[in-house]
């Protein structure tokens, strides 16, 4: 009975082209129960990702591979609840972290900052894999890197304060994005030239959705490296710096 109620979906053949929820069928004009429950389960996973925690120990161990100091920092948002309601606190380092940073202001071309953002799961799973491709590109160009920074309860703009502390010309913030239903593990990359507190979004370039099922590490590393070179050459980032790689004319 229930089987017959559900209209067979003629679009099944299109499913191979996208992870979007196409070809889910209908009963009347409504979504069939099986799909409705799958959606609820995905929402539950996303909610859980929001409350996941940065794996400081695991990341610190992996990052040893790059022979750079690794710092563990914390924003002024003491916990997840504060973090969600007070974005301003997530953009500033707490006192201990600001103090710790003082010993690392040796100057660098690039500061790399890894923050939990809205899904620690995303950076736990993707940050190291991207850096493994990016770091050799940087060293081939003889670019100098600052101490690697891990930040708990951090937002994108906390990278500005950190980059100033490291005296870096440019910052790359790898951060967990708002989890989607089919992507609780999506990582974003924000690049800022001449980072300093007070900047807003138009000063940054963003590459979104970095994860195996989204933008691959290979493509993300290529785009990031292109943006880094252009930003350093043209001494700017943000809306004035377009990703023109691949434009034919």
């Amino acid at each position: 009975m229930a089987e017959k109620l559900i209209k067979n979906d003629p679009l099944i053949s299109l499913k191979e082209f996208t992870a979007a929820r196409i070809a889910i069928g209908r009963t009347g004009t409504s979504i069939p129960l099986k799909e409705s429950l799958e959606f609820k389960l995905a929402h539950a996973h996303a909610r859980d990702a929001v409350y996941s925690e940065l794996d400081i120990e695991g990341l610190t161990n992996s990052l040893q591979a790059f022979n750079l100091p690794v710092l563990s920092l914390h924003s002024q948002a003491a916990n997840r609840h504060k973090y969600l309601k007070r974005p301003d606190l997530g953009r500033q380092l707490d006192e201990t972290s600001a103090e710790l940073l003082k010993d690392h202001g040796t100057g660098a071309d690039i500061a790399i900052i890894i923050a939990d953002g809205l899904s620690a799961t995303a950076v736990n799973e993707n940050a190291f894999s991207l850096l493994k491709l990016l770091m050799p590109m940087f060293s081939n160009e003889k670019l100098r890197l600052g101490s690697l920074c891990l930040v708990r309860q951090g937002r994108v703009a906390i990278g500005d304060e950190i980059a100033v502390g490291l005296r870096a010309k440019l910052s790359i913030v790898l951060i967990g994005e708002r989890p989607g239903l089919s992507s609780a593990d999506s990582m974003g990359m924000y690049l800022t030239y001449n980072p300093r507190p007070g900047l807003t979004d138009e000063s940054r370039n963003c590459i979104s959705n970095i994860r195996p099922e989204g933008l691959s590490y290979h493509l993300a590393a290529g785009k990031t490296f292109y943006l880094v070179q252009e930003a350093l050459k043209r001494k700017l980032s943000g809306v004035a710096l377009k990703d023109n790689a691949g434009l034919l004319d």
Binding site: G180, S183, N209
Partner: peptide
């Protein structure tokens, strides 16, 4: 599709 935007990571209407 299914009210799930797989690029912007939010839920809207289907």
């Amino acid at each position: 599709p299914g009210s799930d935007d797989i690029m912007l990571n939010y839920q809207s209407t289907s």
